[in-house]
Design a protein around this nucleic acid. Structure first.
Lengths: 223, 223
DNA sequence: TGCGCTGAGACGTCGGATGTCTCAGCTCAT
DNA sequence: ATGAGCTGAGACATCCGACGTCTCAGCGCA
């Protein structure tokens, strides 16, 4: 195994074993390099790799730190990975979302606060009659994220956030310019909110399923 | 933005745009470095980072290639990330698995072949009366993976594989030494197989839910 | 007391040298 | 003619040392 890979494993080991805790600062590059028995260049490759997946946080002029290791932060790296997938696997990602999102929405029904529902509702109202694609994407993302956050499961939340990555979603919306599709989507969003307001988990689950399925159906007919 | 980060983005862009396709070979390090306008050392950091998440495959003495970009391969990187999570988030991961696995099992009910069911059944029989922890973990992993693969959704499969990463699962089994827990788990496995053999998706879903929930319950009482 | 400067410390980037590995193509004995 | 084995070119692996840039704490001045 290459020295860089060894270094990655060793640093991982230090974190998993608890020798390094979230927020801790690593020894400076030159010291850590000699501790692990490799050159600074090779160590930097290891640190850079761990930094890409949000395990380490490198601050120039300051030092290198272990991140908070929050699920939210770590799974954020997943959206980077999702971006690489080609169109032919988008449907599979959507199928997974179709499983997770209704469940998350149902969970949110018993936990979401009135204020949050009001806020989400207000945001929908704010969207004009002919919003731009960028506005639609941002609104859609916020809407679903807002609800899923109320599921109380941060892993679930991050996972869905990654699955519905900006690229994928933008790609979907880009072709979704038909007027009726937009209005239907907004209508479904309102229906989900209404179910949440009624604390009706099953209705919320069903509307979420319908919502995702309609996108899925449209996408399947287009591809 | 650092030159290395720029390089990561540029390479990502080349792949996402289709300029580089799966299996393609990248220009040699020195050439690519000058193309992107940075030193070979810095480029190597970018390549190493993309290699960690299985976007690139570096072969010493040969060259650097774009991987197949299969969902299976890319989400494999997730298990690396999952390993970093501490015990307090294991329950959240399990909750997500509780959503996905029953759905995947139900999907498998209509697609799994008789041979696969027989193979899984034989594997359960092969497990003796007092298997070691290693055997239990391996068997449990194989069992669930075998079923989920039959769901026909490779993203779902990889996701579950990552969620039930070796570390997490081993950690759970390690404390699960009570005799009755082991026998109950095996009983549940057989029940799932029976439901699959009957092509009864709803029964399979329910047994899978019960199965995960029992682990969840045990874990909750222990933590 | 507070602003701004300044220097030490740490990461960022670079170029070059050398080691190691892979693969293709050649040599040569069969 | 064919196959094993050798060999050299090419490409990644690793290291060293130097210099640039950034951050932060501490000092000095208004």
């Amino acid at each position: 195994m290459a020295v860089t890979d060894e270094a990655i494993e060793k640093i991982k080991g230090m974190i998993v074993s608890g020798a390094l805790r979230p927020g801790d600062r690593l020894p400076k590059e030159s010291e850590l390099a000699s501790e692990l028995g490799l050159s600074r260049n090779s160590l930097r490759e290891a640190v850079r790799a761990l930094s890409l997946i949000r395990i380490l946080d490198v601050r120039q002029g300051d030092g290198t730190y272990v991140t908070s290791l929050d699920p939210q932060l770590l799974l954020e790296a997943m959206s980077f990975v999702v971006d690489f997938h080609r169109d032919d696997t988008v449907l599979e990602f959507l199928a997974v979302r179709r499983i997770l999102e209704p469940a998350a929405t149902a969970m949110a029904a018993s936990r979401i606060s009135e204020q949050q529902i009001d806020a989400l509702s207000a945001q929908l109202d704010k969207l004009g009659d002919s919003p731009s694609v960028e506005e639609l994407v941002a609104c859609d993302l916020d809407f679903h994220r807002g609800i899923v956050q109320s599921s109380g499961n941060s892993v679930l939340c991050s996972l869905l956030d990654g699955l519905s990555g900006p690229t994928t979603r933008a790609r979907i919306w880009r072709g979704l310019t038909q007027e009726d599709a937009v209005s239907r989507t907004l209508h479904e969003h309102r229906a989900i909110l209404a179910a949440l307001r009624d604390r009706d988990g099953e209705a919320a689950r069903s509307w979420a399923t319908v919502h995702i399925a309609s996108v899925e159906q449209w996408l399947r007919s287009t591809l």
